[in-house]
């Protein structure tokens, strides 16, 4: 019984990691598509505006696309925290309750 529980737990963790990985890739894809940046050109904490010359308004498109993809509503007051990929992931996770 104990062995089965551990196996189930491992399986769940593996699935969660896969889901998280797919989700992270999709977030990166959406951000890069909207900001016209190649995914390989951007690091987690690169600032979109200052380091990649992104137009601050383009971030509205990012926000709307993320809302549509993940079926959430993000408070626009969170925009300053969404200045880089890591910030986007954090705000999304908090909003969606992941």
């Amino acid at each position: 019984m104990q062995t089965t529980d551990l196996r189930d737990d491992h399986s769940t963790r593996t699935r969660d990691h896969r889901v998280t990985g797919v989700r992270d890739d999709r977030i990166t894809e959406i951000v890069c598509d909207r900001l016209e940046i190649e995914p390989g050109e951007i690091a987690e904490t690169d600032r979109f505006v200052e380091e990649h010359g992104a137009d601050s308004l383009a971030l509205i498109g990012v926000l709307a696309a993320l809302e549509k993809e993940f079926r959430v509503t993000i408070d626009q007051n969170e925009m300053p925290r969404m200045a880089h990929l890591a910030g986007v992931r954090q705000v999304l996770a908090e909003t969606a309750g992941w």
Binding site: I60, G61, L63, A64, A65, E67, K68
Partner: peptide
């Protein structure tokens, strides 16, 4: 709001 996105 995002361009022409009335849901947003």
């Amino acid at each position: 709001f995002a361009h022409n996105d009335t849901e947003h």
